[in-house]
Design a protein around this nucleic acid. Sequence first.
DNA 1: AGCACGCCGACT
DNA 2: GTCGGCGTGCTC
Length: 718
Amino acid sequence: MSSENGSGSGGGEGAPPEQLALIRDSVRKAKVPRAKPRTWRGAALAPHLPVARVLVDKGVLHLDRYFDYAVPAELDADAQPGVRVRVRFGAGRHRVRDGRREGGGLIDGFLVERLAESDYSGPLAALAQVVSPEPVLGPELLGLARSVADRYAGSLADVLQLAVPPRNARAEQQPSPAPLPPPQPPAPGSWARYERGAAFLEALASGAAPRAVWNALPGPQWSEEIARAVAATLASGRGALVVVPDGRAVSRVDAALTALLGDGRHAVLTADAGPEKRYREWLAVRRGSVRAVVGTRAAMFAPVRDLGLVALWDDGDDSHSEPHAPQPHAREVLLLRAAQDRCGFLLGGWSCTVEAAQLVESGWARPIVATREEVRTAAPLVRTVGDSDLARDEAARAARLPTLAWQVAREGLRHGPVLVQVPRRGYVPRMACAQCREPARCRHCSGPLEGRDGGALRCGWCGREESAWHCPDCGSFRLRAQVVGARRTAEELGRAFPAVPVRTSGREHVLDTVPGAPALVVSTPGAEPVAEGGYAAALLLDGWAMVGRPDLRAGEDALRRWIAAAALVRPQSAGGTVAVVAEATARPVQALVRWDPVGHAVRELGERAELGFPPVSRMAAVSAPPEALAEFLRSVELPPEAEVLGPVPLPVTAPGRPRRTGAPPPGEQWERALVRVPPGRGAALAAALKAAQAARMARGGGNGGEPVWVRIDPPDIG
DNA sequence: AGCACGCCGACT
DNA sequence: GTCGGCGTGCTC
């Protein structure tokens, strides 16, 4: 992987020219290059290492460096590297009152290092306070945060905000329990189903650092398999970290770890535990009393001691992408950790992302796959069905069920629960042309037209009514519901199968498990409950809507969601059947039928390489009002290989809609440019964008000027 | 972001 | 003279 240089304060070598000029200037001004710490009224200093290097906790990019403070004698003992401190920070001449320097406000920071002398020429202000003697920021975590900040053109302080939970005094006062001794290495268990599975566990248990991309067989064993990998790592005397997409997956791995290792050897880090509990668990990890961690994306930074394994489940799930600046992805953070800590790496899922395929292709990781024989034994039978041939049965017709789907459901319901996956939630359907399926758009603002029960068409953005719609593409006058929400699908299916209970699982109401009795379980992707004994069948409806999204990842995403549902169905040998309503010739549909997500990802990867798309090349998105964007692009000193695509106008945010970071404020016309660099130049691209952004902010572009959003690895490239 | 410094015009 | 407009630059 690309190794980024993480030189601590305000980098020297490799800095762009204008930064070097700044550095030269400040050196010229510095008359005393290495000053003994002087404070304003010579308060008593710590006798040894009287200088504290502090990371000031402000996310602003041009402050992304360390500041030196004097350590007063009375704080000497507590002011150790890694502790939280408070310092005065502010511009201008400070007033001196009672022999203490004041001015600026008190702000939080982390003490990074104690030094004998400072390379700052002016007089040092003193540390105002050591918040607590608990060292929370060790050198490994600091190094990781530095790498992540560099990788994502963000500031160290922003990353630390994600990595170190807020302090909680009560949690800090409680001592953490004594660590348990390492367990015995586990038996391979169901890892034996994979060609290199047992060898992977043995390598971990022996203290080695194997790296693998693991295509998991369908079914519920994955959590136990992850637990065994953790146990093997613990047996070697090292720690392990597991990151999964959501709370339900955390509970599964948690249960598997408890079953294998008992209590007390692992911690659970999730966002929905309260702040005190969360900090207590985090501290137990940081203090070394717990050696293994499972959690959701925030756990990717968990300060596990002597890390032997990082594991990530289902990296295609977009909840692995952190929404807060600088929006790092758990997979990339764990890759940086594996490189930095030289630890084992396990990237697993039922499906396979293009990024995972690339790790194998580049030789960085080795594949762990089952034989075709094992796949055939574990996977359900998949049948495709076009949606033109609607069932003759009246009720099934109303529910938009093609004949084959209806038959699969009816047959499945004789043996157990049947899962019905519908692409999107919500009751109000979006409308599309019945003939060519072009989405129906408002002729005034291009917003989506929505149908109300029996009422007129209405624009979802501007609210105007549309009474005489016809398709601008093919001229048809007929509309159909583009996607029907889970609730309405449930109602329609309830009428089609009157004797069968219907349950729904979606965003607001996620079911964890359902019993093995016959029932229809309607679910949106990602919310599928696990059925006891597996589903007898699954229907994957409205497949065309999943495949047809105008997104680079549409195919991969559709396949991942279908496989996630189909993996909960009984194997073919036990009668498990999946009917997918989609064009049978589409590539992801064929990959589902053959149950070959890895082959699909490899082919996608080849295409991305040809087209120069990520992850083969690296991209960044810059979005801003047109003039600000043009100005930014003029000022940024991109690496010579960089290629700027666009700018193109961004869709206007609809009034009253939630605005995502980097999206224009409602009603404003912004533009977006994509910047692309070839493999290996990602670090240079990030550094250039960061420098330009920092220069902008220092010039006051932050307050008076227009905002400019920079995002590395933008998730939504048309 | 704040906040102080300083350079320049207007006013008691 | 000196008050205060805001443009500019720095924060250990």
